[in-house]
Structure formats: C-alpha cells, structure tokens
Write a protein that binds this DNA or RNA. Structure first.
Lengths: 328, 328
DNA sequence: TCCCGGTATGGATATTTATTCACTTATGAC
DNA sequence: GTCATAAGTGAATAAATATCCATACCGGGA
C-alpha cells in the first residue's frame, strides 16, 4: 500500500473518530476493516501528528503557569488562582478559597491534618471550608505552638478547633508557646502530657498545610508577638534566611538555616515536614516571593497554592522569563 | 465549588489525560477523586472546548476536499488523490491505483463485482490490483457488452477475466456487443444462454466499478468503435446529456436522458445501478468534469474516486468556491 | 423545621478500546 | 529458489472508559 494512501486512510479514520464522533466498531464496518486496525490507525494518527489535541486554559485559569512551576520545582500539584490585584488582602482571600476547595475535594476519610496555626492565609482557608458531613478526617494537629501573647494563643487554638469541627476531626492542640524561653523551658513544656500526645502525632500526619513566612523584620516581629528580639531576627537574616515554614528557616536556595532559635521552637522540624505524605504550601504576594522560592527549593512541598502574579515572579526568578510571554 | 475552580480542575485533568498521557484511574488517584468523575470531567472539557482536537490532512491528502464532496453530494466515501498535473494519463494512473487499493482493502469474501469493461481508468485499476490469496470474490460480472470491434471485444473479455483471476472470482462475461443493431437484435442476444446467465446476475451485484464517460463526440465516437453515428451522438448531446455510465446518459442535473439508443444497449440500466449496494465511480480530468458532476447528481454513486484538480472543479461548480481557500 | 426536585458523587457494571496471540504475507540474505 | 525475519492482520481477550444506579447534599418553598 502506498504511503500516501495509508495516510489518507488514517486521516479519514481520525476524522470519523474525533470529528464525527463515531465508534471504532462503526468506522471499522464502514471501511470494512477490523476494529483492531482502526485502533491502530488512530494511534498512528497520534504518532504522526495527524490529530493534534490542545488543552487551552479558560480565562482566569493558568494551566501554563502551573505546568511550568510543577515541572521546574518538581511539585505534584500547583494551583495558580486568578487575582485581580497584587495586594495582600485580595491574595490571601483567593488563595484561601482555593486551598479550602483543594482540601474539600482531596481529603480522604481518616486523614490526619497538620496545620501551622498562625498564617493568615490558612485562616482564610478555614474560613472558606464548608462543613463536611461524611468522609471525616481523624485529627487536626496543631503543628506549632501559639505565640506568646495569650490572645494569639487563643487565636491558634480556635483556628485548629474550627478546622477540626469543619472536617469532623478531633483537634489535637499544642498548648504551649511556639517559642519557649530556652532549651530547658522547651523540655519542660514537652513533658506535659497533652503536649506530648500532640507532638507524638507529628509523625503520623498525612497532610499538612504550611504557611510560608518571609523574613522581614518588622512583619516578623509583629507576627511573633515580640517573642523574637530584633537582634535575633537580624542574625537569622544575616545567615541568609529568606523565609520560614513553621519557624524553620531556609535560604533562597532552600538550604536550612540553623540558628539557636531552633531548639526553642516547639513545632515540626523541616525533616519532619519532609516526611509527611502531602505538604501543601500556601502563600502569595510581592513580599513573600523570595520566601516562596526558597520554600520550593527545600523540596519538602508537594503542592503549592498561589496566585498569578507570584507565579510569574517565581518563574522569572527561576530563569524561565522568556517563556513568560505565553503566560499572559 | 466556584466555577473557576471547577474549570481549573477540568483543565488540569484534560492536561494530564491528553498531554501527559495518564490513564483516568491514575488521574483519579492523583486528584483523590473517582475515575467516574474524571471521565465526566473529560467529557465536559470537550463540551466546553477546553480540549480541541483537530485533524490535519498530511501533504498530498485532501481531507477537506473529500469531506466537502461527501457532504454536498451525499456520498458514503470520497477519495481524492494527489496528482502532479492535470493531464489524462497521469490522472488515470493515480485514480487507478487508488481504486485498486480501495478494492483490495474493502472487498468482502463472496462479493459479486460488477465492472463496466471499457473504461481506461478501470483498466488502470485492474493493472494495480495485487493477486488476492484469501477473501476471494465470487463473481466478476461484465456489466456492458464489448464494442463492435472484435479487438475491443477481446479487450473487454480480458479485463473482466483478469480482474476475476486477481480477485479469485469466477468471470461472468457478456459475450455480446454493448450496442446491438436494433431492439430486435438485442432480444436475440439476450436469448443466448450465457448472456442470459450473466444478465441474471446483474441484480445480485454487490459492488460495481463505474467508469464515467463524457459526451464529447470525437472521443465518444472513437471509444464506441463507430457503433454510434455522429447523428445519434449529436442527438444525445442535444437532449442535454453531459455524460454516461455504462452508456446510460444523464444531464448536468443528473436526470436520465432517454434516447432510442437505450433499448439497443446491452448492459446495466441506471435503475439497476442504483439498486447495487456499493457503486464506485472512477473518473477525473478537465474534460470529464461536467460528466462527473452529472453522475454525482444522479444519486446512484456511493463512492467517488477522483483527483484534486477535478475535486476542486466539482466543488466550484457546486457553488462552494469560496470555501476553496481552505483546500489549497 | 421538613420535604422536594435538581445536581453531583463513587461503586458497580456495561461498553468501548487496546493488546495479545496465532497466523499470513512480504522482504531480503544467501 | 528457500529460509529467516519483519510487518501486518483479525479474532479473542484484557484493559480502560463510560454509564447506571443508589445515595448524599444543596437550595427553595410549604
């Protein structure tokens, strides 16, 4: 059979199948060949690029950005959400919504959810979760102590409790400060039975939502309720840290930045985070771009949820700027 | 779930399925949803035109032309072949090859093949058929008597016999002139037992290959071995005929043109042709364009095999010229 | 508040598609 | 030539996909 005739035949089969929507058996009958041959021709049509399938992102979705981020940072999933303006308030709201949806649609029954309690983005997520009737989670584990300020403590507790209620899980609180006064103080805290029980669950967490923080002294200080001194923060920044997850610092290349603070923090370590099956990072915004970049480089994240402006900046930082033209 | 989030999800699923080539079950696992939902999302992706599938005709094939002809003339199949130049010799060779391939790939065992024996295009077809080992045809039936000239008679006989041999069938010859001297002469011919047997098979033919002839006195006359007088041909042309199949004439609108000749012709009538399951018309070339157009309009053809120049002319005649731009 | 119709879901299953297998035919080396 | 190898085929069957069904949930009206 001449090559041209074969191609003609394949094209016709592809036409019937993809455009006219006929079934392979019908095509086979029409052309008086076997269904097996039709199947093979269709495969060949793919190989020869006689049929071309393109997936277009609908307006307001960012398939190309997501794909590039997944690829470059080796993530299992990336969600890039639409965001009208590059402003923190709007950004957190959008990311929170997306994260809530993600949690709702991907949560398995019996899951043990870890949550670092004081990220505002995570707060927005919890705000957007609908109460679940079935398919309940098992525990919601607070993975970082509350901050010094009792009001913030309460806040953390409430967040965890609320998430637990929404997911039908039992809350496991960390009734301790996120940062203890000293190594010794931390050990004392850990001796507490309830704290102990929660910490023991760290290794069992199946999915963790991680806020990503940037090292920006003023904001950080505010966030910490003045637990850290300016001096301490300056030291951390000095050591190259660009951001933190659960108060564990890393530099722009994702390398952990060890500091004396580490042994005072009561919460997940980066190693523990890395061992969790699914770790979802939530963050966006101009100021956090470097922190997110570093967080991605640590390799502990499996999923990133962010918005389009940050996504574009991250790709630009990764040296994929030329490709940006596609991502308008 | 927000509409945007749903679209995002669908886009991602389509991406995984069509671009990354994952199976639905894997996608379902990855996204923690059921395979059923993935299937539904993919369907939705089609509906929402998030995935677009296009079938492109490889160079040298004419899917668009074929489609337009099928559509406009209500044909089951159309084959348009590449042809370097709009010249009769090359055209017949190309069409013959394609027809041979068509016969080989679509013939069913036990088929009864009808063949109007004196078209040069059909001759070319027979030249290009490979001997078939299995899946033999039952009979090859000569559907039009030979011409007056005994040499042509022999030619017709050989063509039929050869085709029968190649397809593993038994030849059924029409040992009579295509055009008898008179109505009475025809009746006498039909009284012959062998002729009778062949004619009786006309109604059993399952697939017929039809040459399409144009009414162009000089050519026609030559073809007929001077069986027709110039006068007779002029009369036929006068009556509006533009072409013939098996010496049955029709006008440009496909209406049969009745002439006194009809009752002298020993061969299939248009009505008999129309009753055949698959009728394949073979023809191409500038001079035959009107004839082919008329033949298509008769509605007796199921398949047309022609070449690109004629295909374009036919569409132009049909008033589909504007669309021609697509068919470069 | 409760009930209803409409929509979405996953498990089970029917349908459709891809692959395997046994066999045939074409091709090229010798 | 003839042998081995490669390529292609359809029937049978395995695998993948679409659909059915029973159920759950949402929003709106009594």
């Amino acid at each position: 059979m001449s090559r041209l005739n074969e191609l003609r035949m394949i094209t016709r089969v592809a036409q019937m199948y993809h455009v006219e929507g006929l079934r392979q058996a019908d095509i086979a009958e029409h052309l008086r060949i076997s269904q097996a041959t039709v199947s093979r021709m269709l495969k060949k049509a793919q190989d020869e690029e006689i049929v071309r399938t393109t997936v277009v992102s609908p307006p307001g979705t960012y398939g190309a950005l997501e794909g590039a981020l997944r690829q470059h940072f080796g993530l299992a999933e990336v969600i890039v959400v639409e965001c009208a303006e590059d402003r923190d308030g709007a950004i957190m709201a959008r990311i929170g919504e997306a994260a809530a949806h993600f949690l709702e649609t991907t949560m398995q029954p019996g899951e043990i959810i870890g949550v670092s309690s004081w990220s505002e983005t995570i707060l927005k997520m919890v705000d957007n979760i609908h109460p679940m009737k079935a398919g309940k989670a098992k525990y919601v584990v607070q993975t970082l102590g509350g901050m010094g300020d009792p009001a913030v403590q309460t806040h953390a507790t409430q967040l965890t409790t609320r998430l637990a209620k929404l997911t039908g899980a039992e809350p496991r609180l960390l009734t301790a400060p996120g940062v203890s006064q000293s190594r010794e103080a931390k050990l004392i805290m850990l001796a507490d039975q309830y704290v102990r029980e929660t910490v023991d669950l760290f290794g069992k967490i199946t999915v963790a939502f991680m806020g990503i923080g940037s090292i920006e002294p003023s904001r950080m200080l505010a966030r910490s309720g003045n637990v850290f001194s300016s001096k301490e923060l300056a030291d951390v920044a000095e050591a190259g840290a660009v951001g933190d997850m659960s108060l564990r610092f890393f530099d722009i290349e994702g390398r952990p930045v060890k500091t004396p603070l580490d042994e005072r923090v009561i919460g997940l370590t980066l190693e523990e985070i890395a061992r969790i099956d699914r770790v979802i990072g939530l963050a966006g915004g101009q100021a956090k771009t470097n922190a997110i970049f570093g967080a991605l480089k640590t390799g502990v994240l499996d999923v990133l949820i962010t918005e389009k402006f940050t996504a574009q900046r991250l790709l630009a930082m990764a040296g994929l700027a030329p490709a940006l033209e596609e991502f308008t």
